[in-house]
Computed example of a mutant assay.
Amino acid sequence: MVKKYIYADNAATSKLSEAALDAMLPFYKDIYANPSQLYSFSREAKKAVNVSREIIAECIGAKTEEIIFTSGGTESDNFVIKNAIFQNWDVVTSMIEHNAILKPCEQVKSLGGSVHFLNVDKNGIVDVSNILNKIQNMHGIMSIMMVNNEIGTLQPIESLIKFAHDNNLIFHTDAVQAVGHTHIDVKTLDIDLLSASAHKFNGPKGVGFLYKKRSVSLYPLLNGGGQELGNRAGTENVPAVVGMAIALKENVDNLLNTQIKLKKIECILLDSLLKKGVNFIRNGINHLPGFLSLSFPGFSGEQILHRLDLKKIIVSTGSACDSNNTQISHVLKAIGLDDDVAKGTIRITLGRENSEQDAIEIANSISSILKNMSIEKYNNRS
């Protein structure tokens, strides 16, 4: 019997929910009409889009008309940041944002816009102190991710929102790693803008949403038809929208049980490594359950990844979007890791499909791999 993979890279993408897949299929096969059309054949597709919008809004405490469907987190982030060009905003963001924020910020700067980067401490917590003397004259937006995609640190989002609003800044959060995995109520938090991506919470790839508070005005990133109340042109991806809504509701409904399960599996993995005498550093603080960034000083994270892959265990060396780049990530640099430590970093992100036995096998495999790599190092020096 062929051994199955142990998939532990859920921050890169997650397995599509069976319920989401079942809900999507009719809209590929039979209910394929364009929801914007006026004839009766379109009504069921249009209704599905509207119901999906209601479900998603309810899951994050928003109003239905505040949900804008997009192609994913990257588009949602670009939608927000590129409005700094259209609206002459100052941008305040952090050194550890995803490139879907950082790259548009570079474009804003290249066109003469103002972008200010906040430092983070060794745990990846944003520090606003270096902006205090400049903030009074700013007009624009602060964008800080809710959960870092490489080290799993949850930001003190409430205090950051208060800081932004006290200084007349709109607050946006890239919540791609957070939505469906931690409780979010946009009204209670007073968030102005929030980005999400379906495939991070067991939905389909290629679809996401942007929450936009009714009082916030954005120029459309995509112009054309009048879809999404004029906020985003293009025919809606009806099957994907339906699947996203079902997957998010499923995750939100089971949130507490999933968090408890992942925390238990995470503890088993860490305890197993410690019992085997493995030397490692866990990066970050106040982590999303099941999110582990582990550094093994003196070793190569890339080599660990490939050797785990041979054992059919799937992990990452950092942000999946940078998987072709073997240099130290900007996040690990920003938290001040020494090169020797940073190069030995892997990211293990557990999901609802993982088991306690998976955690034990991952720990056993890492221990075995490091022992073999140590022997190889010794032999090469001899």
Rank of each mutant, 00 (worst) to 15 (best):
D77K: 03
E58W: 10
A62K: 10
D90V: 07
N88F: 14
E66P: 03
D77N: 15
D90C: 07
S110L: 00
I85H: 07
M95S: 14
F79D: 08
C59S: 15
L118W: 09
I85K: 11
E75G: 03
S76Y: 03
S71D: 14
K109E: 13
Q107W: 02
N83L: 09
G112Q: 05
A100F: 11
H116K: 14
E66D: 10
T93N: 12
A100G: 13
N83W: 09
V80K: 06
V108Q: 03
C59W: 04
K109P: 00
H116W: 10
I101K: 02
S71Q: 13
L102C: 05
A84P: 03
F86S: 10
F86V: 03
F86G: 00
P104G: 01
F86D: 07
F79V: 04
I67E: 03
N83D: 12
I96R: 11
N83R: 08
D90F: 05
C59T: 11
E58V: 02
Q107H: 08
D77R: 05
N99F: 13
T93C: 14
I60W: 06
H116D: 08
E75Q: 12
T74C: 11
A62I: 09
I101W: 02
L102F: 08
I101P: 01
N99H: 14
T74W: 01
C105Q: 00
Q107I: 12
A84K: 02
I81R: 01
K63H: 12
L118K: 11
A62F: 10
I101L: 07
L102A: 13
I81D: 01
G61I: 11
E97K: 04
H98P: 05
E75N: 05
I60K: 05
I96W: 10
T70V: 13
P104E: 00
K82N: 14
S110H: 00
M95N: 11
K103Y: 07
D90R: 04
F117Y: 15
S110A: 06
V91P: 00
S114I: 13
A62V: 09
I81F: 01
L111F: 03
T93L: 12
F79K: 03
A100W: 01
A100K: 09
I68T: 12
C59P: 05
T93P: 11
G112K: 04
V115C: 01
T70W: 08
W89V: 02
E66I: 06
C59N: 13
P104N: 03
F69K: 12
E66S: 12
D90T: 13
K109F: 01
D77L: 06
Q87A: 14
T93E: 13
E97A: 15
Q107L: 12
K82F: 13
I67G: 05
S114T: 15
A62Q: 09
V108L: 04
V80H: 06
S71H: 14
D90I: 07
K82M: 14
A62N: 09
K82Q: 13
V115F: 00
F79W: 09
S71E: 14
N83G: 08
G61C: 09
V115L: 00
I85Q: 07
E97F: 02
T74I: 14
T74K: 15
S94C: 15
L111E: 09
A84I: 04
A100S: 15
E66C: 07
L102S: 12
G72E: 03
H116I: 14
I67M: 06
P104I: 00
I85G: 06
L102W: 09
M95T: 12
Q107M: 10
F79G: 02
N99M: 12
T64L: 05
E106C: 03
